[in-house]
Amino acid sequence: MIDKLVMYLAYPFVRYALIVGVLVSLCSSLLGVTLVLRRYSFIGDGLSHVAFGTMAIATVLRLSNNMILVLPVTILGAILILKAGSRTRMQGDAILAVISVSALALGYLIMNVFAVSANISGDVCATLFGSTSILTLGQSEVWMCMGLSVVVIAVFIFMYNRLFSVTFDSDFAKATGQKPERYNMLIAILIAIVITLGMNLVGSLLITALVIFPALASMRLFGSFKAVTVSSVILSVVCAFAGMVLSIMIGTPVGSTIVAADLVMFLICCCIGGLRRGGR
């Protein structure tokens, strides 16, 4: 088994997949805590559908690098979702549902009407579920992922205190002179970046799991924001790494295996949390 893994690691695309997988899971778990606490868990789902729709357009336009179109449009989608919820007659969750399903349906429709490959279902399946996309990354894509991940981590670390205050008490943050709307926008942009990166790892439909499962699992074990955040990062990275190695070794789709690992970890943490509460 170890010999087989060492043989696999000799291939550069396997090393790239592990590096990008760890970075994406790290970034998604950092933001997941804030999103879960602010009840924005499904914003990741909506944005991933927007990203899918944009990717369909990029595919039809035969862009050599989809990220050129997907990243800015997803960021724009995140900003629109947040702004639209506060200023229109429709509630935020309804806006999210409208944008989400519209983007998914239109994306699939565009890919079918303007088909550029012989295997549309395969392309759609790979994008939605991330079966082997992470194992087909080139060096330039890895560098881009690394750069964007560093940006997300750096912003989170430097803005940690402000994000903390906006997450728990935005009214107090406003009263003390901070601008919660700007930090909400920043969180939306960061999550759009993470969603775009995460699509390669687990696909559009499963990216929400990468964001919320580590945060929810950590909340079963710890009470403080810092402890939950650190624990969420550790759990997310461990599950992503284990999921990828497992899928490569036993031959299962990468995205689903990672999410299954996250689910198992979440259930274990629920049990541990339940036992600890029962013991008190």
């Binding site: 695309f13 396997v14 194992l135 031959g251």
Partner: peptide
């Protein structure tokens, strides 16, 4: 023939790509 499904597909994909 000694690799798992995802790896085989990825190797062949990379053989076509590079």
């Amino acid at each position: 023939t000694k690799m798992s499904g995802p790896l085989v597909y990825s190797v062949v994909y990379n053989m076509m790509k590079d």
